[in-house]
Computed example of a mutant assay.
Amino acid sequence: METTDETVEVPASDTPQVPDHGEAMRIAEALLFASAEPLSVDDLTGRLPEGADVGAILEDLMALYAGRGVNLVRIAGRFAFRTASDLSFVLARDVVEQRKLSRAAMETLAIVAYHQPVTRAEIEEIRGVATSKGTLDTLLETGWIRLRGRRKAPGRPVTYGTTPHFLEHFGLDAIEDLPGLEELKGAGFMEGRVPSDLSVPVPSDDNALREDEDPLNQDDLFHPLELDEGETGAE
């Protein structure tokens, strides 16, 4: 019987190789540490080995860092490493002090967050006092609120809403994480007798314009907050 030295080629498997989970975790960890901004699932998916289970990787990293000095947290739908909340006092001296907002600005910000989309007139109605152009300008400069559109009403007033930067600054994953009535009571923000009919609205920062809103035009980006005729400034 004759024999041959021919090598038999084995067909390559069509089954895709599953990337090493541990190595993918290391890559994700490096990306998150190096990034100056929180990263989304899509950001990581595009830079991790093809087929990597990004959801599982993030869950494992969050568990791995849960008891450490830094934690992997979800902020505004994205992921970032942050100092553990119980150790924030250690870094207090190293934090750059931001300009403190006035009481009027904080009240206005809270109203925008809970009642968005909201107009300046609606803010004034809720606060019970006039709101100055400077207060809204300050909040726009911080990047915590934005111009959404124009109300379909006489005068077509500008409507305001919060931004992803607002969520990031206050450590919120979503606007729905803002405290409700019971949480506000428990935290001591609402003392004394609370009216029985008082309610805290469920906030929504959906980017889609409401039925009573029109889109902004180009001029709104340059002259969004002209003073009303005869206005002299307010709180």
Results as ranks from 00 to 15, higher is better:
Gly186Leu: 14
Glu141His: 13
Asp197Cys: 00
Gly22Pro: 06
Glu23Asn: 13
Lys133Glu: 13
Arg47Asn: 14
Leu109Gly: 02
Arg151Trp: 02
Ala84Arg: 11
Pro164Glu: 00
Asn217Glu: 00
Ser199Val: 12
Pro154Phe: 09
Asp86Thr: 11
Arg210Asn: 11
Gly161Ile: 01
Gly180Ala: 12
Leu61Ala: 01
Ile111Lys: 03
Leu181Ser: 09
Ala76Pro: 07
Gly233Pro: 00
Ile123Trp: 01
Arg146Tyr: 01
Met190Cys: 08
Tyr160Arg: 00
Pro38Ser: 02
Thr163Ile: 10
Thr142His: 04
Phe33Leu: 15
Gly143Ile: 04
Thr15Trp: 06
Glu191Gln: 15
Gly134Phe: 06
Glu176Arg: 14
Glu229Thr: 12
Ala24Thr: 09
Arg146Cys: 03
Glu125Val: 02
Arg78Lys: 15
Val18Asn: 06
Asn71Val: 08
Thr131Cys: 15
Asn207Phe: 12
Leu39Lys: 06
Asp20Gly: 04
Glu50Leu: 09
Ala153Gln: 11
Pro224Leu: 02
Asp173Thr: 07
Arg120Cys: 00
His169Tyr: 14
Gly192Lys: 03
Ala12Thr: 10
Thr159Ser: 13
Gln17Phe: 02
Glu23Phe: 14
Glu211Val: 09
Glu229Gly: 03
Thr162His: 02
Leu31Tyr: 09
Ala66Asp: 12
Pro203Met: 08
Glu50Asp: 12
Met190His: 04
Thr119Ile: 02
Asp86Ser: 11
Ala34Asn: 11
Leu32Lys: 01
Glu183Trp: 07
Val41Gln: 11
Glu168Gly: 00
Thr3Val: 15
Asp137Arg: 11
Trp144Val: 10
Asn207Pro: 13
Glu191Lys: 15
Glu37Gln: 12
Pro201Glu: 07
Leu172Trp: 02
Ala84Asn: 14
Leu109Gln: 08
Tyr114Ser: 03
Ile175Tyr: 07
Gly188Leu: 09
Leu136Gln: 05
Thr15Ser: 13
Leu227Asn: 15
Pro19Tyr: 08
Gly22Thr: 10
Asp20Ile: 04
Asp219Thr: 09
Val118Gln: 00
Thr163Pro: 08
Ala105Lys: 02
Val90Phe: 12
Leu209Glu: 05
Glu213Leu: 01
Arg103Pro: 04
Leu58Thr: 04
Pro215Ala: 04
Ser199Met: 06
Val8Ser: 11
Asp14His: 04
Met25Trp: 06
Arg74Asp: 00
Arg82Val: 11
Ile123Thr: 04
Glu97Lys: 13
Asp42Leu: 14
Ala187Phe: 05
Gln98Asn: 09
Val54Gln: 02
Glu23Thr: 14
Ser199Asp: 11
Asp42His: 11
Phe79Met: 01
